[in-house]
């Protein structure tokens, strides 16, 4: 069996996997990082979105062996030193989640959006979320939360200048 090693949430991890093991299976089953969810089998729902080398990807559509040597961040690694990421905080503040199942993928996707586009319009947020399905919120408060996080983060960025 191939062995893989990668950095997950800042920690060096490794293990033996089958070639066919998906990144999401490695994260959930071998590392116990169950915050990354599986909501479909056709790479559309986005419940499994994580960051690999800084960009959002669907962990159900990447083999664990493909991610060897990469830097992986999951929802569990987003908060730093007990401090929520502004996107996480905004989701709570603006009720951007209900059942919570799509939420980790939604947040990881949103964080990537704001890396690309610090001040997206509502339409840009909605388009970006094409790969993230939510059945509870009607997206209204997710969009609101992401817009608020963008404002918050750019405010901080300005303050730091």
């Amino acid at each position: 069996m191939p062995s893989v090693s990668m950095t997950v949430n800042g920690k060096q991890v490794g293990g033996e996997v089958e070639s066919r093991t998906l990144l999401v299976e490695f994260l959930r089953n071998q590392l116990g990082l169950t915050g990354t969810h599986v909501g479909c089998d056709t790479s559309q729902c986005g419940c499994c979105v994580v960051h690999v080398d800084g960009r959002s990807v669907k962990a159900c559509t990447m083999l664990a062996v493909q991610a060897a040597g990469s830097q992986v961040t999951t929802i569990e690694g987003l908060a730093r030193n007990g401090q929520l990421h502004p996107v996480q905080a905004a989701f709570r503040e603006h009720h951007g989640l209900q059942c919570g199942f799509c939420t980790p993928g939604m947040i990881m996707s949103a964080v990537d959006l704001l890396q690309h586009n610090a001040n997206p319009t509502e339409a840009e947020v909605r388009e970006w979320l094409e790969g993230n399905l939510c059945r509870c919120t009607g997206y209204h408060n997710i969009v609101k939360a992401i817009m608020a996080a963008a404002a918050d983060m750019s405010g901080h960025a300005k303050a730091a200048e």
Partner: peptide, 11 residues
Amino acid sequence: DQRFITGKGRY
């Protein structure tokens, strides 16, 4: 929400 936004939900 705390558990859901930090990946600590337990489904």
